[in-house]
Design a protein around this nucleic acid. Structure first.
Length: 807
RNA sequence: GCGGGCGUAGCCGAAUUGGCACAGGCGCCAGACUUAGGAUCUGGUGGGUUCGCCCAAUGUGGGUUCGAGUCCCACCGCCCGCACCA
């Protein structure tokens, strides 16, 4: 019979919660540790993949607490968003009802795992208590000119009937429903994140406890490129347009220029052109084609405007085209085309029979098309002979001298589009007055609360627009009739500051008390999926910097250490409801209990790597726990009491070496090897018991086992701690220190190699000297037969290795 | 195309610094205990062996080194991110 995990789990879950063991307050006398998992969307049932992450965070909470830290580990809910709204559209159930039911279920599931939090600080973004401060934050950004409304071509999902941020368009498809995204011109709210581009980029270097790949992804997302900006005059008109290039050195190779179809100058350019009709059709088509379809066409398409531009460096005239391979949203929406040095321009030139001039000499034998590498400039007048980098400097200097161009840095990062035409999000606190324009809702009228609506389906605007009592208001400034903004905010606004609210979760007079935030921030350990590398993690950094500039937050970066966990894979795919390959924990809870599940989640592989689910794995960790249980119950009293001998001292040495290893492994997030070390220790402890243990020694070794197990398998270890006669709560015990004397090796294995191959192993003293080690090695009879042809050299690394180099 | 990462046993994996390759688990085989075993315990699990050991082996090929899973070069394969970004 195995141990009664079900009863034990319920008992300790009640105690942790009932005795408020993990509820904390600010305590300047103690070092704090702020441990946060990215707050989840309350999506219902947790599967084994989710449990992996919750187990990591819970382990840290419990471990750091034992290390003496004042550990804050809160939990909350990213509870606005589409799933609840879509359910409402289908079933008519209010999204709030749906959401709150899901939250209750998720809480039960976290409790069942034995995951502990300071539930006093629970928050949920769909509650007016929380989103009131979203609105307050919006108004602060608005005051500072960091929130603005603008007509802009935006990503529109025809299925969800809403706009999407650039970050939510994946391969030209809506991130949520995979519908091809189209461009539309709409009045939308933006946050001016581009104001912070430089700081977001530069401060990445402060984040040296973030995974490199996340920093690289943010860097690429911000997408800084250096180059030059200069003007092209349109022949026979007063107009001109600016182009941006990273290769100003190739300007003598420009053989045409291209404008994006949405470029403001195109109307004027095509007016009266010979092929005006064709051009207008092309422009119209390009504007309604989704990015995906544009790319899918493969061949670049475009249309000649009938106009010519003048190359400022040599006065040559080049034809101006309109083509959709040039994007309005990057640079100036117009380019100089140098087919000799740019593959896209090459492709276009080939298709439309345009001239190609090489301006960088390709190496001999070069057989490619456009040449992008370095080399001496050719066909480039005063740049001829210069390498690319030199030529760039010279031509930029020339532009600046002439006053026709200048050095410029462009970024890929765009302002953050936060408007959503949906119901289940935070209403934007703005009133649109025909007289006063965009008028903020006065702070004392916050929160702007959702009215209930009859129909949740969006029809191009938020369902809120159909509620006259909500929409029709008087202007706070002039008192005249006005309309309320009906867009709601992107849910990423909520998640960009919730971790600050945990510090003071129920403050109803301000967003948070800056002193409390000062105590807890930054988040010491942030845990979440790498899929948030450029979305949430960039926005959160931005908002933190804004609040810092407002004097509300001392830190400039919110997350000191970031850990991105791997995913759980089954049948070759990430475990997810939509793929239908989830493993539900329930049968495992029933058969093996929460601790065995936790231990297996830790053991399954390196935490940063994806791991493949193995149906038999939990059985393995359960066997280990069951062994620990059997060792601790009933037997200890019958172990003989006697003087401790060498074998007894040895098991204590094993215990302390295990303690050192487990401590190290937890500190560096190698949880899988920490579990392996405990299993190994368990095996040794069992051997010790079988071969005649001494009671006091065993009790001590077993005590260390329970302490080490406490953060990983808390229920069983708490129960055993109590049942082996200890009155304290294990969670409140201190993590033990290993004894350096016990950890020190009595003897070490000296490996004797001949030509790098192991030929003998000798047990020697750890402080053996070089001479002594070499003498012993050379004296080894096993070595003798391998060195008969003479010894050339001896390399010693005492006490672990001697390598004899022989003929 | 650009950027990042990975390749070790039948499977998942270990190996902080260049120094004993494969800890721990799963699976499999055998044995013990047993009325029974899907419990538990013990041993084995690359090849050879005279049972002392010996040999091979970390995707492939090369290099540096007394010594390479680890460093360097090239290639093969897989994964992730970005992508007409001028």
């Amino acid at each position: 019979m195995s141990y009664d995990f079900a009863a034990i789990e319920a008992k300790w879950q009640d105690r942790w919660e009932g005795q408020r063991v993990f509820n904390v307050t600010e305590d300047p006398a103690r070092e704090k540790f702020y441990n946060v998992q990215m707050y989840p969307y309350p999506s219902g049932d947790l599967h084994m993949g989710h449990l992996r992450n919750y187990t990591y965070v819970d382990l840290l909470t419990r471990y750091k607490r034992m290390r003496g830290y004042n550990v804050l580990s809160p939990m909350g809910w990213d509870s606005f968003g589409l799933p609840a709204e879509n359910a409402a559209i289908q079933t008519g159930i209010h999204p709030r009802v749906f959401t709150e039911t899901q939250i209750m279920r998720m809480k039960q599931q976290l409790r069942r795992l034995g995951a502990v939090y300071d539930w006093d600080r629970e928050l949920a973004s769909h509650t007016p208590e929380f989103y009131r401060w979203d609105q307050w934050l919006f108004l602060k950004l608005f005051e500072r000119g960091l929130a603005y409304k603008q007509l802009a071509p935006v990503n529109w999902c025809p299925h969800d009937q809403t706009v999407l941020a650039n970050e939510q368009v994946v391969d030209g498809l809506c991130e949520r429903c995979d519908t091809p995204v189209v461009k539309r011109d709409l009045e939308q709210w933006f946050f001016r994140i581009t104001e912070y581009t430089d700081r977001l980029l530069e401060d990445l270097s402060m984040l040296d406890h973030w995974p490199d790949r996340v920093r690289v992804m943010q860097e690429n997302w911000i997408g800084r490129s250096e180059g030059a900006l200069f003007s092209l005059a349109v022949e026979g008109s007063g107009s001109s347009f600016e182009v941006f290039t990273t290769r100003p050195d190739t300007v003598f190779g420009m053989t045409f220029a291209v404008l994006a179809p949405e470029h403001p100058l195109v109307d004027e350019l095509v007016a009266g052109a010979e092929n005006e009709e064709e051009a207008r059709q092309y422009i119209a088509r390009a504007r309604v084609t989704s990015e995906l379809d544009r790319l899918a066409e493969g061949e670049k398409s475009g249309v000649f405007t009938g106009r010519y531009a003048i190359n400022p460096v040599d006065g040559r005239r080049v034809p101006i085209f309109i083509a959709d391979y040039v994007l309005l949203t990057y640079g100036t929406g117009a380019i100089m085309a140098v087919p000799g040095q740019d593959q896209r321009d090459w492709d276009f030139a080939k298709r439309y029979g345009l001239e190609i001039i090489r301006t960088v000499a390709p190496p001999e034998g070069f057989e490619g098309e456009a040449y992008l590498g370095d080399g001496p400039a050719i066909n480039s007048s005063f740049l001829d002979g210069l390498a690319v980098a030199e030529a760039k400097q010279k031509i930029i200097a020339w532009f600046e001298e002439q006053g026709t161009g200048r050095r410029s840095i462009q970024y890929r990062l765009r302002d953050w589009l936060i408007s959503r035409q949906r119901y289940w999000g935070c209403p934007i606190p703005i009133i649109i007055c025909p007289v006063d324009g965009m008028v903020p809702v006065p702070e004392d009228q916050l929160p702007v609360i959702h009215p209930d609506v009859a129909d949740y389906a969006p029809e191009g605007q938020s369902p809120l627009a159909a509620v006259p009592e909500f929409v029709e208001v008087s202007c706070p400034k002039c008192g005249g009739p006005a309309r309320r903004e009906t867009d709601t905010m992107d849910t990423f606004v909520d998640s960009s500051w919730y971790y600050l609210r945990y510090c003071d979760a129920h403050n109803d007079s301000e967003i948070f008390d800056p002193d409390k935030v000062k105590y807890w921030m930054p988040v010491d350990q942030y845990v979440g999926g790498v899929e948030h590398a450029v979305l949430h993690l960039l926005y959160a950094r931005f908002i933190t910097k804004v609040l810092h500039d407002m004097g509300m937050v001392e830190v400039e970066e919110p997350f000191h250490r970031l850990f991105t966990q791997g995913m759980l894979v089954k049948d070759g795919a990430k475990m997810s409801k939509s793929k239908g390959n989830v493993v539900a924990p329930d049968p495992y809870y029933e058969r093996y209990g929460a601790d065995a599940i936790r231990l297996f989640e830790l053991f399954i592989g390196p935490p940063t790597d994806d791991a493949t689910w193995n149906d038999n794995g939990v059985e393995g960790t359960f066997r280990f726990l069951d062994r620990v249980w059997r060792m601790g119950t009933g037997q200890i009293g019958s172990i003989e009491e006697r003087e401790a001998g060498e074998a007894d001292r040895e098991i204590l040495r094993v215990a302390h070496r295990t303690l050192r290893k487990v401590t190290d492994d937890i500190e560096r997030f190698h949880f899988n090897t920490a579990v392996a070390a405990l299993m190994s220790f368990g095996n040794e402890l069992q051997d010790y018991l079988r071969n005649g243990a001494e009671r006091e020694t065993f009790t001590e070794a077993y005590r260390l086992m329970l302490l080490m197990l406490a953060p990983m398998a808390p229920h069983i270890s708490h129960e055993l701690w109590e049942s082996t006669g200890r009155g304290s709560m294990l969670a409140e015990e201190a993590w033990p220190d290993w004894d350096p004397e016990l950890v020190a090796q009595q003897t070490v294995t000296l490996v004797v190699q001949v030509n790098g191959k192991v030929r003998d192993r000798l047990e020697v003293s750890p402080d053996i000297g070089q001479e002594e080690a070499e003498k012993l090695a050379l004296a080894s009879p096993k070595v003798a037969s391998w060195v008969s042809r003479g010894i050339k050299r001896v390399i010693s690394r005492p006490p672990s290795l001697v390598n004899i180099v022989s003929e």
